[in-house]
């Protein structure tokens, strides 16, 4: 046992400095395509056509991106003309109503208890949420905790496209939470159903079942993006700041 103590004590601190400082390590995010200007309209249409999930839309001389449909397949970066790719991670969005935004401050700013419900997501999303509690991201330092029971939870973190057997469980979990409560939809399949929608068995969107306050897009969203979503919820971070200098390009 002493050996373990030494091993633990001699390991360097791995934890990211985010949100105090931006994380600049490589490989913490897959990045995302951002609005790209094109030389002509036809090119824009061509570029949009490369996207298998219709995340990219042509708009005269540029293409716009619906990040909640993007699955990071990077098909749009492979052709002759490519989408601009930005290696950031602060892409969570507030989508709830203002009442929720007003209620979130004060008592919940320093500490938040989270109940995770998996409604049909892949393991990658679960794995990225797990990373939050692990040494590199350690969300406990920010006052975020996973709680086993919804009775103690302030935030419901939902992943997956809400399959029909899980809909009732999701509703029950939401109902079991005390007011005030917020919901974070993590991952594109929780936001739009992603590649699993439209479907006979999956709802496709958490928002159709329970009111959602924060979207964390991504397939899967990297841990820092989820952290951004949580900080956004507590009002300790701002929304979607476009970073002008990309942190790096796709390899």
């Amino acid at each position: 046992m002493f050996g373990w103590f030494v091993k633990g004590a001699t390991s360097r601190v791995k934890t990211t400095r985010y949100p105090a400082r931006d994380e600049t390590a490589l490989g913490v995010t897959p990045g995302r395509p951002v609005e790209t200007t094109c030389d002509n309209e036809l090119l824009a249409v061509d570029l949009a056509a490369t996207c298998p999930t219709d995340a990219i839309k042509p708009a005269s001389f540029k293409t716009t991106v619906d990040i909640s449909r993007c699955v990071h397949c990077m098909a749009c970066t492979r052709g002759e003309n490519t989408m601009r790719w930005q290696m950031d991670y602060r892409w969570a969005r507030w989508v709830g109503n203002d009442a929720g935004r007003a209620a979130r401050h004060r008592p919940f700013q320093k500490s938040l208890h989270i109940r995770v419900v998996d409604t049909g997501s892949c393991d990658a999303v679960i794995s990225e949420i797990k990373q939050l509690a692990k040494p590199y991201y350690n969300m406990h330092r920010l006052g975020f905790f996973i709680t086993p029971t919804p009775r103690h939870a302030d935030v419901l973190m939902v992943t997956g496209p809400v399959t029909s057997p899980m809909r009732l469980a999701l509703l029950k979990t939401y109902a079991a939470m005390p007011e005030p409560k917020w919901v974070i939809a993590v991952g594109n399949c929780a936001i739009s159903g992603c590649v699993f929608a439209p479907s006979f068995i999956a709802n496709g969107s958490v928002a159709d079942v329970i009111p959602v306050d924060v979207h964390v897009p991504g397939c899967p969203p990297p841990p820092l993006a989820i952290l951004h979503g949580l900080l956004l919820l507590t009002g300790r971070e701002t929304e979607m700041q476009p970073i002008d200098q990309p942190l790096g390009g796709p390899p």
Partner: peptide
Amino acid sequence: SEPWAAGL
């Protein structure tokens, strides 16, 4: 509300 039973 009904007792919490893990979404049963």
